[in-house]
Amino acid sequence: MSHISLFACLAIFISHTLAIDKTVNPELNAKLKLVATNLDRHNVLAKDGGWEFPGSVVNANAATFPALTGVGMMLAMLNLGPCAMFPPHLHPRATNLVVAVSGDTTSYMVGENGAKVITTKLTPGVMTIFPQGSLHMMANNGCGNAQLVSALNHEDTGTTNLFNSAFGNLPSEYLQATFGDYGFDIEHMGKNIPEVGTGSVPGSAECMKRCGLNGQKSGKIKRLVV
């Protein structure tokens, strides 16, 4: 597979709930928090053109879609390219419902220490739940695209990427102790973790090889946003 066709396949990798959203209209958010009635809210949104949301490339939440300010929910369309995954993360302020629209995706969720791993095969029409604060991830098992809809019961859910939060923030000597005396190069491991905000990342080596997406040095594959 050529680099051009490879990148074309990977072009459907998209930012979602793992991204760090920038507030597009802080003045409008402030106005909505101060209105006295729901009618005032409608008038403010009508005047500022706040009822339309431009699409699924970014999360629909209070930051990107001010009309959701105070509503207590957000929605995102998740598009996973072949073999792509959303790495382990959690939402500190929201429970997450995810329903598959297309493709073959597997989700993994750990509720807390001692709880069994919940594995769900997300095929079209199948839904799963990630309770607030639970650690979870999703991986596209196929060589085609997968699409899912994600709903969360907070307009500012927050996202904590497990490895991004640990590496580069916590003292390396304690991370080394956490992994045990197995000769891991903690500094090297941390440098290879994709940055927060890229959304999906390349998944398992087995899937990449099966789908003809291997061949990139050190597993580094260019991520493109549509």
Results as ranks from 00 to 15, higher is better:
Ser200Pro: 05
Pro54Gln: 08
Lys222Phe: 15
Asn164Gly: 14
Asn141Gln: 11
Val101Leu: 09
Leu170Gly: 03
Lys191Ile: 10
Val201Ala: 11
Thr119Gly: 06
Gly125Asp: 02
Ala76His: 08
Asn96Leu: 10
Val110Gln: 08
Leu68Ile: 07
Met77Ser: 14
Cys207Leu: 03
Pro131Cys: 02
Phe167Asn: 05
Met127Glu: 09
Met73Asn: 04
Ala166Leu: 15
Ile4Tyr: 10
Thr37Gly: 07
Thr159Lys: 05
Leu45Lys: 06
Thr23Cys: 14
Val99Asp: 04
Val226Thr: 09
Ala11Thr: 14
Gly72Ala: 03
Glu206Pro: 08
Lys217Phe: 12
Phe167Ser: 02
His136Cys: 02
Val196Ile: 14
Ile118Asp: 12
Phe86Glu: 13
Thr160Ala: 12
Ala100Tyr: 01
Leu18Trp: 06
Arg210Thr: 11
Gly81Asp: 04
Ser172Ala: 15
Gly203Gln: 01
Leu122Thr: 00
Trp51Ile: 03
Val71Lys: 11
Gly111Ala: 11
Leu175His: 05
Gly183Arg: 02
Ala151Asn: 03
Tyr174Cys: 09
Ala94Gly: 00
Lys191Tyr: 04
Phe13Tyr: 10
Val44Asn: 04
Ser200Asn: 08
Thr198Phe: 11
Gly190Ser: 09
Thr128Arg: 01
His188Asn: 11
Asp48Leu: 06
Gly168Asp: 06
Phe13Glu: 08
Gly212Tyr: 05
Glu187Asn: 12
Ser56Val: 13
Pro54Cys: 10
Ala139Phe: 03
Val149Leu: 10
Ala205Gln: 15
Asn61Ile: 02
Ser5Cys: 12
Ala67Phe: 06
Phe163Pro: 02
Thr157Leu: 05
Asn140Pro: 01
Gly183His: 01
Gly158Val: 03
Thr123Val: 13
Glu52His: 13
Met127Asn: 09
His91Glu: 00
Pro88Lys: 03
Arg41Val: 05
Met74Cys: 13
Ala62Trp: 01
Asp21Trp: 02
Cys9Pro: 05
Pro194His: 06
Gly111Glu: 09
Arg93Cys: 00
Leu68Pro: 01
Ala76Asn: 11
Ala30Asn: 12
Ala166Lys: 05
Asn29Leu: 07
Val117Asn: 10
Leu148Phe: 03
Thr123Ile: 10
His89Tyr: 07
Leu97Cys: 10
